[in-house]
Design a protein around this nucleic acid. Structure first.
Lengths: 392, 392
DNA sequence: ATCGTTCTCGCAATCGATTGTGAGCCTCGT
DNA sequence: ACGAGGCTCACAATCGATTGCGAGAACGAT
């Protein structure tokens, strides 16, 4: 009795709910009835299976006995479609194993539901963890994340960003923002929805750890332990993470009336090797520092290696603290004192926020608060002062 | 002011190369000539900017003064298009900043140039490294890789695979194949181009390290050092990597007439924690083993931690060997003996091979040969035998 | 000078999903 | 009972790129 439209078997053995459709299928005309048979010159062959299983929206619509448009609406928000009809369509879709073709939808809507993500390198467990959060956040919002490694190389960043944009991602999440580069602002100026994770940049919404605070926490801890001559392995100068962790640390020391000797602040790469090199340099300083703060756990591990090479036992002869608290840090032979930052959550919130921007809801930057994790690598400075007790 | 459709200035000052085309534009009729003006009910509004910058193939064609089809061919392989014309089209595309819309192309061709990748977890540096290779290989072939973490959970593997398939990836690269699961074979049966990386599975083309050989290399090394009572941290039983490394190792020992005590072979997760637990168990064995082979570097680090906790110095009181030779291993306080596997290359070749399968060229499995890296963590067994010299 | 080949290029039809507009049909009020 | 107002649904037109087929041009051969 309802929409006569076409025949299309609907073989469901449902008993009642009589939507029998009066006119019946008239068994014939496959296509949409009367058609101004237009000029029929070309004879393009069909490309191939549509997608996963070849089931298209038209198939679902035919099966449910409704028009494609109705089926489409029913499968989306269901607005403007009767409850019963919607359910029938959903059932058909389920039974037929229908899966929307994102290419078709994207072509029509102009949105891909893809989020591009740029990271220095996924082999850096910190970024990998952040990415796990991004993936989860994106998925929760119905988006798919697509990552690319840029090795912190400006040219690669630009190239990968364009590549992702060519893929028509709806937005870009940058985990490799550099203070000495203009890529991020340029993208924003171009109207591309952009958000930063892990590293900050003025003028671009970002989701980061409160690195200044993190650095300060370490400083306060070392100060309480009586360390007055301290070194800092500061990371790369173009990354806000290292810069701000260092600043928070030195600010706190300065406020305590014990300014950090500038010559004891050295830059480095964020890996074990970089930390090792920096460690050697710091340990060769005239009065040797009694504690070293590395802005990254792996760099801290490198520092511990350098200490050993110098015949020092980390935690006894030299206090060492890191940052990020990667799982490995707590399992080290000499567990590493570190600052825990909610990496996964940062990624998740960043992804959700970017989706918000994409969908017109806008978003505000957010800084997550870090927590100090004291372990064996930082012990009271046996030489200069009375050890202060710290609740572990 | 958008696409000029017809005439379109083509402001190029090119002089000759007379491809004047008799009929010329005739500047008139917008649409395709005669048309049975169909009923014109709906009046759908334009969705939005097409993509990156709104430049479409039609714009390029108009700018170059050719038909879309010609422009399309010119920008692709250039087959069937005059050299001069092709160059002119390419120039227009370049100047206008044209970028193909993958959604449109995908819709028409049925192929997305997307490669789906499944890994247990990107926070595992081994897989992250493999993925770097995959990304590079895919990019080199003009494809984009899309990863998802499955945490080695069968349900998640299935869910993520379907998700990726729904995205219409052209093929799937599995880095998390489990021997106790049928997902991979099922996908193959469904006709989905599938390749495995890192782990193997009978009947599915894979790109792996020759893990048996790797295990054997470690065994030979430890045998040469005189270790007769050895333990194995074997990893997860569902991963071919751990299983085969263990088998290669025990086979070699058996062949040498020194079968490994089955009670000294314990499974474990592939991380530090797992290695630590397994290490404790092994070190509690009646006659304590003098050497332990962990099928994964992180597990080996855990073993070293367990050794320390037991008052043993790795490399002196207990030989420890790992597998994969991640960068960290060589930088450890006590550098770890490990087996180097070409992780990045494996990923790259796997991606290239998958592309080959997608494009109809097929591909054969391949096993990469590993290399032993001897370091301080394995020293001659001071107790039982005369140390054999090994060329480092 | 005429005919046949080989190239080039334009035509128009898709691919599958989305959506503004308007036409039915039902319900409810008076 | 009849009209108004609401809901539901169908129409058909896109989105942008690809492609089989055929027409026309250019060129060589006889």
């Amino acid at each position: 009795m309802r929409r006569p439209t076409q025949g299309a078997g609907n073989a469901r053995g449902t008993g009642g709910s009589g939507h029998s459709r009066g006119s019946g299928g008239t068994g014939g005309s496959e296509r949409s009835g009367p058609r101004t048979d237009g000029p029929r010159t070309g004879r393009p062959g069909p490309p191939r299976e549509s997608g996963e299983n070849g089931v298209t929206l038209a198939d679902v619509a035919a099966d449910a006995g409704v028009h494609q448009s109705t089926a489409s609406r029913a499968l989306r928000d269901g607005a403007g479609v009767g409850a019963a009809t919607a359910e029938r369509v959903r059932e058909s879709a389920r039974r037929l194993g229908y899966v929307v073709n994102p290419a078709a939808a994207s072509l029509r809507t102009g949105r891909s539901r893809l989020l591009g993500v740029l990271v220095p390198r996924l082999t850096d467990i910190v970024l990998a963890t952040v990415y796990e959060g991004i993936e989860a956040g994106a998925a929760a919002a119905g988006y798919q994340a697509v990552v690319a490694n840029t090795r912190d190389d400006p040219a690669a960043q630009r190239a990968k960003a364009e590549r992702l944009l060519a893929l028509r991602v709806d937005g870009l999440l940058l985990g490799d923002a550099r203070g000495d580069t203009t890529l991020a602002p340029e993208l924003v100026a171009r109207g591309v929805p952009v958000a930063l994770v892990s590293r900050r940049l003025r003028g671009v919404t970002s989701f980061t750890c409160d690195d200044m605070l993190g650095g300060r926490l370490v400083a306060e801890h070392l100060l309480a332990l009586g360390h007055h001559r301290v070194g800092v392995v500061a990371g790369e100068p173009y990354a806000s993470t290292g810069v701000e962790r260092t600043k928070g640390f030195t600010d706190a020391y300065a406020e305590a009336g014990v300014p950090v000797d500038p010559s004891l602040i050295v830059n480095s790469s964020f890996d074990v090797h970089g930390g090792e090199r920096a460690g050697h340099r710091l340990l060769a300083a005239k009065p040797r520092p009694t504690a070293i703060f590395a802005v990254n756990d792996f760099a801290a591990i490198g520092v511990m290696g350098a200490a050993r090479a110098a015949g020092l036992v980390p935690g006894r002869d030299l206090a060492v603290a890191g940052f990020n608290d990667v799982p490995l840090s707590a399992q080290l032979p000499i567990p590493l004192t570190s600052v825990r930052s909610p990496m996964r959550e940062m990624g998740e919130r960043a992804a959700l926020a970017l989706v918000g921007m994409v969908e017109g809801r806008g978003a505000r930057s957010r800084r997550f608060v870090p927590e100090l994790r004291v372990r064996a690598s930082t012990a009271p400075d046996g030489a200069s002062r009375a050890p202060a007790r710290t609740t572990n």
